[in-house]
Structures are given as C-alpha cells and as structure tokens.
C-alpha cells in the first residue's frame, strides 16, 4: 500500500478527529437530522469546515512569525463558516439555555482548525490529513443520524432515548477505530 493511502487510513482510523480528538462531537449529536436529510446537511457542514480549515492552513503558514494572532484568525474563519452553514438552512433558531443554535458550530470549527494545524507540516501530506478529517466528520454525521433515527423508532423506555445512549455507541465506535489498542 502506498504511503499516501496508509496516511489516509491512519488519519481516518487511529487518529480519527471526531472519536479520538473529540472534534465536533456536540455539533454532530445535536444537529443530525433524519437520515435522508443527513446526506445533504452533512455536506453543507463539512464544506464549511473545509473552508475554515484551508483558510486556517494558509494563514498559519504566512503568519507563523505572529502565532499569537492565530486564535483570533481561527475565530473569524469560524464565524464565516457558521454563516455558510446558515445559508444552507441549518443551525437556525435557539438551542437550549438561551443559546443560539449557530453557537454549537463554533467549538467544532475552532477545534478542527487547532487540531489540523497541529498535525500539518506544510507539504502535500496535509491535503491527505485534511481529506481524512473531513471524511471522518461526514461519515460520523451520517452514522449518528442513522442511530438517532433507530433510537427514536425503538419501543425502549424513554430514559434510554437520551444522549448518553449515543455516548455509549460512540465509545464502542472509538474502540473499534483505535483497534482495541488498550487491550
């Protein structure tokens, strides 16, 4: 297997952005719609994330001497990405505790940028790392949408319909992704 494909699988499985680094977990748990709509909505979200990360990659390369400015630039990138997601009719209205729904994309976008920039070496391999991270986010988005739909349909007690059931599923998924290396 070529080095590029190995790197892609390594980033997709062993260094999975969502399940190993916890990036965008909240956004995925809260914003996943019904499975049918998730295919399109997932594309909108990963597209906006791609924009913010590529932008962060460019700025971090040219502003490496002024690294203290980077969090502010990532924040501005994230705000633009949130706007892009909102144009796709997602993240509308209010969430809980008086917080707007659009806010939940902010930690996801920021942590993805920090996470990716920490892994980059400013060469062609960065493209593979970025592609693997975005593929991960899209795939987990679809998987969680499917699981949520199944949980809603099941006739189990209401207490099991809450988010901690999803945490247990995510625990199993992340154990599979890491190849049960803790054993």
């Amino acid at each position: 297997m070529s080095k590029i494909i190995l790197l892609f699988w390594d980033q997709l499985l062993n260094n999975n952005t969502v399940l190993i680094s916890f990036t965008a977990v909240l956004l995925i748990i809260v914003e996943t719609p019904k499975l049918r709509a998730a295919f399109k909505d997932g594309l909108v979200i990963t597209g906006a994330m791609a924009f913010s990360t590529v932008s962060a990659w460019i700025f971090s390369y040219y502003l490496s001497s002024a690294a203290f400015l980077l969090p502010a630039i990532y924040f501005l990138n994230s705000l633009i990405a949130v706007k892009l997601i909102k144009t796709g009719n997602l993240l509308q209205g209010n969430w809980i505790a008086g917080i707007k729904r659009e806010f939940i994309a902010l930690p996801a976008l920021l942590s993805l940028q920090f996470n990716i920039i920490e892994r980059t070496n400013y060469n062609y391999q960065d493209l593979i790392i970025l592609a693997a991270a975005l593929t991960t986010i899209y795939l987990i988005f679809i998987v969680i949408a499917a699981i949520k739909e199944q949980l809603d349909l099941k006739e189990s007690k209401k207490i099991f319909h809450k988010e901690y059931t999803l945490f247990l599923v995510l625990a199993f998924l992340s154990a599979v992704m890491s190849g049960f290396d803790f054993l």
């Binding site: 809450k162 901690y164 999803l166 247990l168 625990a171 154990a175 290396d181 803790f182």
Partner: peptide
C-alpha cells in the same frame, strides 16, 4: 481498566456517570 484512560473510556464513563446522575 486501561480502557478508561483512552478516548473510548471518555465516552463510556461520561455516558454511565450522566445516566447515574439522571
């Protein structure tokens, strides 16, 4: 339980603790 120190343990223990608190 070495699993607890790894990412799967974070999801697992958070899920269990939240369930007990609930």
């Amino acid at each position: 339980l070495s699993l607890a120190a790894n990412p799967p343990g974070a999801f697992l223990i958070l899920g269990l603790v939240a369930f007990i608190y609930e």
